[in-house]
Design a binder for these strands. Structure first.
Lengths: 196, 196, 196, 196
DNA sequence: GATGAATGAGTTTTCATTCAT
DNA sequence: TATGAATGAAAACTCATTCAT
């Protein structure tokens, strides 16, 4: 039992142990006991570095988000072409979802695992939107490559309406609605010119 | 104390009690005791209608999602114009977020309330994306009305990458990425013609 | 494991278990685990009857004090002679210190700060003694300036019966009782000449 | 950070820190961490001067009691008149209850069980009072049967000064002091007529 | 002497779930 | 059907004490 590791390292160990376990079993299903056991330290030590379980979660959150933000800036900075910047941004975010230490799910959906019901049920709304895109396309009114995939993204985008989602400098509701309508239209390829 | 109410009614009472309490205090902070007390039934009765607390949550989920899906279909069915259908779809979803019995937050973010850290931290990523839109617009490369609001939506849309998010009939990853890229481009007004 | 005992009985069992353990090992050294194990019930049951460990202590306090106050009134009521009433009062208090279920030590010397219940409950015994002084004075049998204040001091003086109170060279019990009786009589101004 | 302070001083610092904190927040609510932080020393150092938290409490007890005993002797020594000696004794005790660093409440009402140190230490004050009664009796000024036992009771009676002791309808301080002086005089048999 | 990082047993409290009635 | 008393496993958090440096 290594005594007196540098504080930085201890903190990192705890953060890492928490990340792994939250990822593997969900936040609610992970106890402090689990975390300290995995980090190889005593329970008391945890409270020398974090005020509570929630405090650890917040720390993880900050770590994750600042990393992703940095990567977005870096990736988009390396490309000159503007449309290509957008592609790079998407790619970076997608990649971060694919990484073994992805915390999106854990961080943005605190608590527990996604139940089967949850998953299945999501499909209901998704289908409604997907059908809309597909039928519009069939009617020749929309110009969208992949209605199903686009529906997933559009449906997900509306979670931005959630007051708990956006940061403190949140745009007002009417701006969000207007922007979403423009987004849906453009996603569907329903307009040729600029604005809605 | 009315004994032997119709089963349908009992179930609905329980569902309603759960919805109200989850909404008011969060899922984690709501105990079965609370739910059954509010529904005016005994604790044992609960287990005659639901397998567990989670089962109730799932049922709520199904109820909520099927209602929203129905409303989307109804709203979009009443309009003839295709772009207007998209607007209607957005409006319905947005309205469901505004309603006093909105369950989005509860259902898609199970457990507890959103911490300050969570909220603050979201801004980091949001800023990165928002900056991208704004600077592209300033450069004359993008044609987007409201970069900040659009960033919120685009960032939210990427949660669609989350394997826990989309239904069982999820489009493959590469389709999602490609669709997202098209979505970002179009959202930014970075292309005049149809596809990417 | 008897299921569903009458609530009164359960409560009494818990109270009794607490009293015995507090008496034997002190309040701080007694955990809820100890109490429920002794009472032969589950830990959860405790919280069906008491809000907390402190709540149990308060309940014990009320129980004890109201019993003692009753006994003081009863004992003094049975004697006609006023000085003899004082003796009887001392005797009752002393006896309650001797009983196997004496809680003086436990109740009046709880660690930390004095609870509201504690304070309120003290008044029960105080009133019994104060009434005695006041009525004796009214009857012209006692010559005491301030019955209420004197009652406080006399009641406090009996804490000298507590074996944990006096030093190693403690006078024997019978000397304490006799001295207390003299003290009460003299405090009350119930005798003109020297000794009792 | 002064290293290697004289041991006496270290000990005194720790004692003082403990006294202040016990007084302010109660014994149970004061951790060793609090004490050492206040004393400006490390946690380890504490154990160089005291065997345990309880040991510190005992040391405080001895300190307090020997001081009070000294003051009782000093105050009573300065008066010639015997009844006046009793009054002085009461006054000293009462004053010590009024001082900002009064430890009565903390020391004589510690949670759980009475420590050996506690018991031994009580004797110091008891002796001072007992000596007073005995010498007054020897001088023919007092008429008290059992000075030692009476001292125990009189000392105990002064715990009635403790604001946490008496009920909500507590007599004012001046009434308590006056009543205590009368009590001590009468207990000592220092007056033949009624009031002080 | 002096430090303070580390320990881990111990505490109170909660609550989903069971089951005798 | 319906009840609600009873369970007990588990959780978060505390803190007196130790000991390598």
């Amino acid at each position: 039992m290594a005594r007196t590791k540098p504080a930085e390292q201890r903190r990192a160990d705890l953060l890492e142990a928490g990340r792994e376990l939250f990822l593997a079993h969900g936040v609610a299903a992970t106890s402090l006991d689990d975390i300290t056991r995995r980090a190889g330290v005593s329970k008391g030590l945890f409270y020398l570095y974090f005020r509570s379980k929630d405090d650890l979660l917040d720390a993880l959150h900050v770590q994750f988000s600042s990393r992703l933000a940095d990567r977005i800036r870096a990736a988009t900075g390396q490309v000159a072409d503007w449309p290509a910047k957008l592609d790079a941004c998407v790619t970076v975010i997608f990649d971060s979802y694919q990484e073994p230490d992805d915390l999106h799910e854990v961080l943005f959906r605190r608590g527990g695992h996604v139940s089967a019901g949850h998953r299945a049920t999501h499909g209901l709304v998704l289908n409604a939107i997907s059908d809309l895109f597909a039928s519009g396309k069939a009617a020749g009114a929309f110009d969208v490559e992949d209605p199903a995939a686009t529906a997933v993204l559009c449906w997900a985008s509306t979670h931005g309406f959630d007051p708990g989602f956006h940061g403190q400098a949140a745009p007002a509701d009417d701006r969000l609605v207007r922007a979403a309508q423009q987004l849906f239209r453009r996603a569907a390829g329903a307009e040729t010119s600029g604005s809605a």
